[in-house]
Design a binder for these strands. Structure first.
Ligand SMILES: [Mn+2]
Ligand SMILES: [Mn+2]
Ligand SMILES: [Zn+2]
Ligand SMILES: [Zn+2]
Lengths: 147, 147
DNA sequence: CATCAAGTGAGACTGTGTATCATCTTGCCA
DNA sequence: TGGCAAGATGATACACAGTCTCACTTGATG
């Protein structure tokens, strides 16, 4: 609930109009558990009786991404997923079993990126670190299975 | 030339058959300058008079990726591109102006990933670092423009 | 060579994302 | 409070990425 409002206010702050479809979709996305694809948002919206065009789903994802309220994750499968998250720069660990994510602060990575820039001679202005594995609870569940 | 042979032998080592289409496409990919999309491989092959089905391009990219001879890069635009590269684990810096890439050894990143695993409780088994910016020669070119 | 599992190409098909355009809404202001 | 222009919407058509099927071909192996 308050999560959806954060998403909506990010839209507002970025100068986008606060429309019905955007509010509804922001709520759907904020309540999603783990990364979601455009198709899943459209499906979930449909299931809740929210009647919104497919193009609007893509446009809203686009607007939210530009507003910094959601972020794209390129899954190893090639799919594009998104997660609602803080507007500050950070990265994500994604559980490949249940989809839960955790945010990871940039921390030591900035120094590493600087060093890579120095060594390669590239002027690096964008980087992306994505981590995949099992979240604590899925690790625990798997352990029990064989324990 | 020898680059293409490396790609072909990686295929061989992974137990794939060495067919005409695969050799031809491996050559095309090895000679590509910077990351290439499936569509660009198909286009380039066509331009060289190599008659090969579109499905085969996708299947060959797939086989080469599994063989470790090429690697996918998720461009910020959302496109999927590939680069021919060494089979050892590493990452890429991509020039967003000219497309040139440089390989970056994992180095200090492994420790960082371990630390992230410890802090988040995730058992991380895959990570991906992608860096985008300007290569040395594009930086130089831009500098001259205003010098 | 003969054999046959693996690979190929044509083409249909699914899915993602974009373009168009007539219609509707929002934010703003008189 | 109503009027309006810019911006947003949705229906639909479209462009493109990637997969699937299936009849046919080819490479590796002996
Ligand atoms: Mn995030
Ligand atoms: Mn590589
Ligand atoms: Zn999990
Ligand atoms: Zn460059």
């Amino acid at each position: 609930m308050t999560e959806a409002m954060l998403v909506v206010s990010a839209l507002d702050a970025a100068g986008y109009r606060l429309t019905g479809p955007r509010r509804a979709l922001a709520t759907v996305m904020a309540e999603m558990d783990g990364p979601f694809t455009a198709a899943r948002v459209a499906g979930e919206a449909h299931d809740r009786g929210i009647r919104v065009g497919r193009a609007t789903v893509f446009r809203t994802i686009d607007a939210l991404e530009r507003a910094g309220a959601i972020e794209r994750i390129d899954l190893p499968s090639g799919e594009h997923a998104y997660v609602a998250c803080a507007p500050a720069h950070h990265h994500h660990v994604v559980c490949s079993a249940c989809g839960h994510t955790a945010e990871v602060a940039d921390g030591a990575l900035v120094a590493l990126v600087t060093e890579i820039g120095r060594r390669t001679g590239f002027r690096i202005d964008e980087h992306r670190l994505e981590l995949f594995g099992r979240c604590p609870s899925c690790v625990r569940a798997a352990g029990e299975g064989r324990g």
